[in-house]
Structures are given as structure tokens and as C-alpha cells.
Simulated scan of single mutants.
Amino acid sequence: MTKQFVYGDYEKQYGILREYAMELQSKNLGTTVKIDVETEPKLCDDLDLNSSSNFTFISDQQRRAEQRFCLRHVYDNMKLKHKGNELREAIWCCGKVYNLTKFNRVMEKLKKLNPEAHEWLSKILAKHWARSRFSGRALTDSLTNNLCEVFNSKLDEARDMPIITCLEFIREYLTKRIVNVHKVLEKYKGSLSTTATTILENNKTVENKMRVLFSGADKYQVTGLWMEQYVVNLKERSCTCRKWDITGIPCQHAIVAMYDKMQNGSECGDPEAWVGRPKKKRKRATDEPTQSTNLSRKYLTVTCSKCHNKGHNARTCKGQGGPSEARKGSGQKKGEYVVETITFDRYFG
């Protein structure tokens, strides 16, 4: 009874769940709340499960989102059949490399080390667990779900609470966390996060150890210390090493290409300005007309309906340049509106 008094009644809270959802939407504009009720789960029927079966299902099959698997969990499943520190290091090496050529090379090493483990791992699509196959949509190279694990560990206290009490616990926890993040950001003076700044500064330290060859069209060939070659495309914000593509932070090769461009008299901007996704629309000049279905009056010449002269309309007409009697005899009746004529002299004249 004490627990029920403190946390609320389980059954009653399910009865007012829809009212709780409506309250969230009314107090937090833009909030999306979805309540889905399944009285006869098909999966339970397929597996012949009942209310006393001790099974928990976690689904991450979001078809519209990029799916990734935690590499640590992938290895945990593998080591049930294939164990060894050397094998573990080989698997992590396969996941960590960014370049597809290097990925194929380390996968061959894994095959020589343990053919059965290689066959087991090859059955899992590499795009779910290997950086070299990530699409770059998420702009993160994370291989684990540590963020989810940390979040789940904070919710242990709320798991046995009634549904609304549990949801309120999650909402308050996330609110506090967001506020704490904002406090940290307010103290930071840089334009990037601490992590992004550290990565970028480390990438800048090797720029004098590489050779750059401009290939035209914002493309550069960059040769490293060990004579490995990469192609940087500043226009596409990409490098064949794929670190820039996956993380959104300019890699060593990209920074070298930027410095070369600036040294040759071209505007490029600091590497910090290249972090993140590119702008979808280019910045227009102040005197450049926008491409829109609505015609702008900025470059149009207005013809007055009174005196039929250009440069003003009927409302501001003072008879300049022609007789105001031009309106007479036009057949306009009382109550009708005069439509002003707009000509396109700049475009068609």
C-alpha cells in the first residue's frame, strides 16, 4: 500500500494514459505522442508464448533510419563459439578502419587467423558494424551503443513503476540532462564541441608531413608519409580515406588541401567552418534575385494605369509625365478595381 501511495496505481494509470498524452501535447507544443495497443501480438503466437513465458524482445527495425549493430555485442555473440584475444583484436580492427581497401585487407587477415570466425562474421552485413561501410548520414563513427547503455542504466529505478510515473521519471531525467549540457555549452567559448575541437587540432598537426597536388575542380591528390595517396574533393566535402565523410570533421588530408588552396590565393575559410553537413542552398549575392514562383517587384517596371507612364502606380500618380485624364473613357465603372500593368523590361526588354 505504501508503494502504491507513493508511485500510484498501475491499473488506474493505464486508464488515464491518453489524458496524460493530451496533457503533454498541450503543454509542450510540437510534441508527438503515439499510443499503440496490441491485444493479440502476432510474434507471441508464432513462437507459442503465453503470459508466463520469460521472454523480452527489443526491436530496432526502423526502416527509414540507418541501422547499426554494437560491435561489442557482435563479438560477445561470436566468442560463444570462437574465442581468443588475438581474434578479438582482429574483429575490432575490421570495424575501426575507415577505408574499404584496408577493410578488405584486415578481413583477409581474419580469414587466415580463423576461417570459421571469418565466415561467421561475413554473414552479418558490414554496413551495420564496420566504419568503412557506414553511409555517413549520421556523421558519427561510433561502433558501440554506450549511449544507450548509459541511458538504460539510469532507468533501472523506474522500470517497476506504474506507467505514468515511469514516463515522468524519464521526462524529468532528460530535462535535467539537457539543462546540464546547456550549462556546459554556455561556458565553452569555441564554435565547436570539445571533442570536435580536439580531433580537428590533432588533424592539423600533420599537415607539414604531406604533399599536395591540385587536380582541378576543387580536387587534390594528397600523399602521406608512407607514400599512400588519397583524393580530397572540397566541393563534395569528401576524402577517399572516408574519415571526413563519416564524421563530418575534416581529416588530415582535407586540411592539407585547404591550406594549399589558401596559399595559392583562393578563399577557403578555416577548417572549423567545414565541420558538419554542407549547406543545402548556396549563399546568394545581395543583388541576386531568388528563384521563386512568386515574382519579385525588385526588378520589375510598374506602369501607371492613370497616365500610362512607367515608374509609379495609380495610387502615387500626381500627373507626372502625362495627363491624368487618360483614365477617362477607359470604360471603368464605379466599384471596379484598376489592375496595374507590370512589364518585364529587365528580362525581356
Rank of each mutant, 00 (worst) to 15 (best):
C241K: 01
T293C: 11
M227W: 04
S266D: 12
V206H: 04
A257V: 09
T303Y: 11
A273N: 09
G276R: 00
D245G: 04
T223C: 04
S292Q: 10
Q221K: 13
K243V: 08
V302I: 14
A285D: 12
E207R: 12
M262A: 13
M262S: 11
C251A: 10
T293L: 15
N203F: 05
Y230P: 01
C239N: 03
G216E: 06
N208V: 03
K209I: 01
A273M: 13
V231I: 15
L295I: 15
N203H: 14
R277K: 14
L200W: 00
T223E: 00
K243A: 10
P289H: 05
S238G: 09
E201T: 11
R237H: 14
A217F: 07
K243P: 01
R237C: 11
Q221N: 10
E236F: 04
V231C: 09
T223A: 01
T197G: 01
L200D: 02
V212E: 01
P278H: 05
M258L: 15
R297A: 11
T290N: 10
K283Y: 08
H308N: 12
V212F: 02
E236N: 15
Q221V: 15
W244P: 02
G276Q: 02
T290R: 14
A217W: 02
A273G: 04
C239S: 07
Q291D: 13
T301P: 00
L234G: 00
E267W: 12
K298L: 14
A273Y: 06
E267T: 14
L234T: 02
C251E: 07
C307R: 00
L300V: 15
D245S: 09
A273C: 09
V222K: 00
M210G: 00
R282F: 09
K281P: 00
A254F: 03
K243H: 07
K235F: 07
L225Q: 11
Q221M: 08
K235Q: 10
K204I: 03
N208F: 06
C307A: 08
C251L: 06
T290W: 05
C307D: 02
D270Q: 09
Y299H: 13
I246E: 01
T301H: 08
G269S: 11
Q229A: 09
T303H: 06
T240W: 08
G216F: 00
W274F: 08
K279Q: 09
S305I: 08
P278L: 10
E272N: 10
E201V: 07
L225M: 12
D245Y: 04
M227C: 07
K281A: 09
L300Y: 02
R211A: 12
V222A: 03
K219N: 09
V302T: 08
T247G: 03
S292R: 07
V275H: 02
V222T: 03
L213C: 09
T286G: 04
E228G: 06
K204F: 00
V256K: 13
W244T: 01
Q252Y: 03
T301Y: 08
A285H: 08
I246T: 00
S238H: 05
L200R: 01
T290S: 14
E228D: 12
E272W: 04
T247Q: 06
Q291N: 14
V222H: 01
K219G: 01
I246D: 00
